[in-house]
């Protein structure tokens, strides 16, 4: 103990103190589009009480949040909204992809549903389940706290080294047609939109 230091003072790094504070007061941005949103509400309500982990302040404004919880499937029309919300959140920020649909598209393997939000925004934590139990979401929040304590810094610069992900893969239309055993119809001009009057 250094000479002259009072008893109720301790030394730490500023990073560690900031990360400790951040990890224990996550403000989630609930991006709830489907039934996972109901479980998210259940997690926030009295029985499961996400307030025990300091993440109860759901703000419906991305400017005030630092944890994006994508709960539910995201379709083509919603993805630009999700990206805009992610960009509006101030640094440092994190993202939980909650449920099978947000992680992979789930059972909705159709033309309009994005097959995993991690193709288009960075995701820190994946929660499997359809929908996940509130306990699973709480476990993800606890893991997220660990991750923030381990990796977060004052400036968020360390995120630059964590930019790897695959992005959208090239898409073979003919492969889909073969999977569907579809015979192309000769001379059919179906993909020309009709002339609008």
């Amino acid at each position: 103990m250094a000479v002259g230091m009072p008893e109720n003072v301790f030394l730490t790094r500023l990073d560690a103190a900031a990360n400790w504070a951040r990890s224990n007061s996550l403000w989630p941005m609930p991006f709830a589009t489907a039934c996972c949103g109901i479980e998210l509400m259940a997690t926030a309500s009295s029985r499961h009480d996400i307030a025990r982990f300091g993440a109860e302040v759901m703000r419906f404004s991305p400017r005030q949040c630092d944890l994006l919880i994508v709960a539910g499937r995201v379709v083509m029309k919603m993805l630009p909204v999700l990206q805009r919300i992610w960009q509006q959140m101030p640094e440092p920020k994190w993202c939980i992809s909650m449920g099978a649909c947000a992680c992979t598209g789930g059972v909705f393997d159709t033309y309009a549903v994005v097959q995993g939000v991690d193709r288009f925004i960075p995701v820190d934590m994946y929660v499997p389940g359809c929908p996940p139990r509130p306990e699973q979401l709480i476990a993800a929040v606890i893991d997220m706290q660990e991750k923030i304590k381990r990796t977060g810094t004052l400036t968020g610069k360390e995120f630059e080294t964590r930019t790897t992900h695959m992005g959208p893969q090239p898409f073979d239309v003919d492969e889909l047609r073969r999977m569907r055993e579809m015979v192309p119809v000769e001379g059919l001009t179906i993909y020309d939109p009709p002339k609008l009057n």
């Binding site: 993805l79 990206q83 159709t110 033309y111 097959q115 925004i121 960075p122 630059e160 930019t163 239309v173």
Partner: peptide
């Protein structure tokens, strides 16, 4: 295109993934 036409594949022509990718560094 028109997705309920029978010659439109169920998974589409890749429109669902025709979006810019946001990474940590640029968002």
């Amino acid at each position: 295109t028109f997705p309920l036409r029978k010659d439109y594949p169920l998974k589409g022509f890749g429109e669902r993934h025709n979006f810019p990718v946001l990474t940590r560094a640029e968002s």
